[in-house]
Simulated scan of single mutants.
Amino acid sequence: MIKSLNTAATGMAAQQTNMDVIANNIANVSTNGFKRSRAEFEDLVYQTQKEPGSSTGMNAYSPNGVQVGLGVRTAAVQKDFKDGNANVTKNPFDIQIEGSGFFQIQTPDGQIGYTRDGAFQKDPNGRLIDKNGNLLQPEITIPPNISGIEISATGEVRVISGLNDPAQTIGQIDVVNFVNPAGLKAMGKNVFMQSPSSGQPITSRPGLNGTGFLSQGQLETSNVNIVDEMVGMITAQRAYETNSKVIQASDQMLQSINNLR
């Protein structure tokens, strides 16, 4: 009877983790470039009372055996890198990657991070930075007193100084891809870091090597689907409630045993 108490307790803990992941998804429904997560679970070790296929007599074998599971645990929290929808802003420094890939940014401590959030702006020196002051890599410096800026689908940055002046190329925005993007380490602030699981970054021009093209004047929204998250939340809540019922039932059975005379 004690096993059922512990088993149900692991189920409640797993559903609490599931609810935490769902809550984070819903909280970030309006976060640019956010990628939803999904909790994945696996069963724990089994208590084997009879081995499957063990001998039960002369030329007779147990077809199934007797194995009792001891619960569940969280195996992984998987990131879903499916593209979000486009939000047209008409801001010339808002850039969306339409497909796979990440922007490279340099954090204040000199590390290279990766993000899907393309909401960039100028710092006092004219360099493109994200909302946290991280520098876009390679650095793009916008000259002062320009009349227009154009970012092509392949990442070429051009500026126009005067109405009659030809466009001048000032830089190139490259994107980075990974063999296993789900293995990136989420650092918060819309930034990911490379990990041994993600593999090495592969830098290329937008549109090459399986990466997406760039779109100026729009941003990628979160890929969280509220309806799916609500259904998942209801399922987690009911599973949590059912596990609590198992604990109550096990307690009542123990009480019945204690009342035997």
Rank of each mutant, 00 (worst) to 15 (best):
P52D: 11
T242A: 14
P108Q: 04
G57K: 09
T48L: 09
T89A: 04
V66W: 07
T203S: 12
Q47S: 13
I140M: 03
D251A: 11
P166G: 03
I112T: 11
K82G: 15
T115R: 00
N28A: 04
A23I: 04
L136G: 01
R36T: 05
D130Q: 09
N25W: 00
L260V: 11
D251C: 05
V191D: 02
Y240Q: 04
R158H: 07
V21E: 05
G57H: 04
P144Q: 12
Q78I: 14
Q194D: 02
A239C: 07
V191H: 00
T203M: 12
T141P: 08
I226N: 09
G11P: 03
S147I: 12
P63N: 11
P206E: 02
S204L: 12
Q121R: 14
D174I: 15
A76V: 08
S198T: 00
V227Q: 12
N259F: 02
I160Y: 00
R127V: 12
I142H: 02
D228W: 06
R238V: 02
M193S: 12
S37N: 11
K185G: 11
D165Y: 07
A23Y: 03
P92G: 06
Y61F: 13
P138F: 06
N243I: 01
T74R: 08
G101M: 07
T48I: 11
V179T: 15
G162F: 10
D165Q: 15
Q78H: 13
M187T: 03
G57P: 05
I97K: 00
N180F: 06
S250F: 01
P138R: 06
A9W: 01
G110W: 06
A186C: 10
T31V: 04
I202P: 00
I140F: 01
A13I: 15
G65D: 08
R158V: 06
N91S: 15
S152Y: 04
G162D: 15
K245H: 10
V77E: 07
K189C: 10
E40P: 06
R38D: 13
M19W: 03
N243K: 07
R36H: 08
Q172F: 02
Q111G: 08
L219A: 00
P206M: 08
E98K: 10
P206S: 09
N134H: 12
K3I: 06
L163S: 15
F178W: 00
P108F: 06
Q106P: 03
K82A: 14
D43M: 10
M193T: 09
S54H: 03
K189R: 14
S100F: 10
Y61H: 07
K245S: 02
P124K: 13
K35R: 10
M58S: 13
N134I: 01
L5T: 00
T211E: 05
V191M: 10
V21Q: 09
V72F: 01
G232A: 11
Y114D: 00
N25Y: 01
